[in-house]
């Protein structure tokens, strides 16, 4: 076995070295804006106004953090709580519903499987439109200003359902058949045979769902006005949306007179928003990578 691996030659080393340098430079390029954000958050407003942004803080000051944390600590802490709760509960719920649906429509001897699959597929082709969606969410399900409003509308993504269904369809039928012969019901087959064998597919949609919930600002925008249900992304979205609107629509509604958040405050809120995730990410990234690549090499 060992003899089959070709020893590395000098040109390989050079190539690998080049890749390291290129990737290193690219990483630095990606890091630059983040460094500027961090540096900006530790600078004084006047220095930023006079000299612009730089890699190192100008007139180092913790005043901005003091200001933001003393005034918005509760909102930010609550927004973090909401985002984490919605991501965890939403992901678990969505994955459960999606995999269950996917299994049901993949069962070969279930006569309504195709009808159910079409029922789901139809929503991919024709959307009800925003107004009916909003009416259903607000008037019938009363999802405004509730945590469920941030979870339920995303509970089943049909595309992900088809992804899992195709994965399940790839599992040899003989395996489920033998489980049935051994006396397992549908539920037992699902839990003990299908789920363990579909792990790779499920991990993928876990990642997708988690990212959807984490990055979502649309549902809070549509369904939430009470700030105790604001998510972190919505707070950031709101801040940017306000700034962009006011910068490009200077004459509407006395918009000229509205004081925009100062540069340092914007930077500090961005740091607080991305900080914990940036700190945790290096420790969990191996699981993300594993999740995406598991099952990628088969046979």
């Amino acid at each position: 076995m060992k003899s089959m691996i070709k020893p590395r030659i000098k040109s390989d080393d050079i190539l690998i070295g080049c890749f390291y340098v290129l990737l290193g430079l690219f990483s630095l390029l990606c890091l630059l804006p983040i460094l500027m954000v961090i540096s900006g958050s530790f600078s004084t407003e006047t220095e930023i106004a006079v000299h612009g942004f730089s890699l190192l803080p100008q007139g180092f000051s913790l005043d901005t953090y003091n200001y933001v944390l003393s005034r918005q600590m509760n909102t930010l802490a609550s927004a973090y709580g909401v985002t984490i709760f919605v991501t965890l509960v939403g992901t678990v719920l969505s994955v459960t519903i999606t995999t269950c649906f996917a299994y049901v429509v993949s069962v070969k001897d279930f006569q309504h499987a195709n009808k159910l699959a079409f029922f789901a597929y139809f929503t991919m082709l024709f959307s009800g439109g925003m107004l009916p969606w909003y009416l259903v969410c607000t008037r019938y399900y009363h999802l405004q200003d509730t945590l469920w409003g941030l979870i339920l509308p995303y509970c089943m993504n049909v595309f992900y359902m088809y992804l899992v269904r195709n994965y399940i369809n790839g599992i040899p039928y003989e395996l489920t058949e033998s489980a049935r012969i051994d006396g397992a019901g549908y539920f037992q087959t699902f839990v003990k045979v299908i789920l363990p064998l579909s792990k790779a597919g499920i991990v993928t949609i876990v990642l997708f769902y988690a990212l959807t919930y984490w990055n979502d600002f649309y549902l809070p925008l549509m369904l939430v006005t009470d700030d105790k249900y604001f998510s972190m992304q919505y707070i950031l979205y709101k801040m940017n949306a306000n700034i962009q609107y006011l910068a490009t629509n200077s004459t509407g509604f006395g918009a000229d007179h509205i004081a925009l958040p100062t540069q340092t405050v914007k930077m500090a809120i961005t740091c607080i928003a991305i900080g914990p995730i940036a700190l945790v990410y290096p420790f969990v990234q191996k699981y993300f990578v594993k999740g995406v690549t598991v099952g990628a090499l088969k046979g």
């Binding site: 925008l221 006005t225 979205y237 709101k238 949306a241 306000n242 962009q244 609107y245 006011l246 629509n249 509407g252 509604f253 918009a255």
Partner: peptide
């Protein structure tokens, strides 16, 4: 209740 400025009109 407050909405972002992008939602005006």
């Amino acid at each position: 209740d407050y909405l972002p400025w992008t939602e005006v009109n």
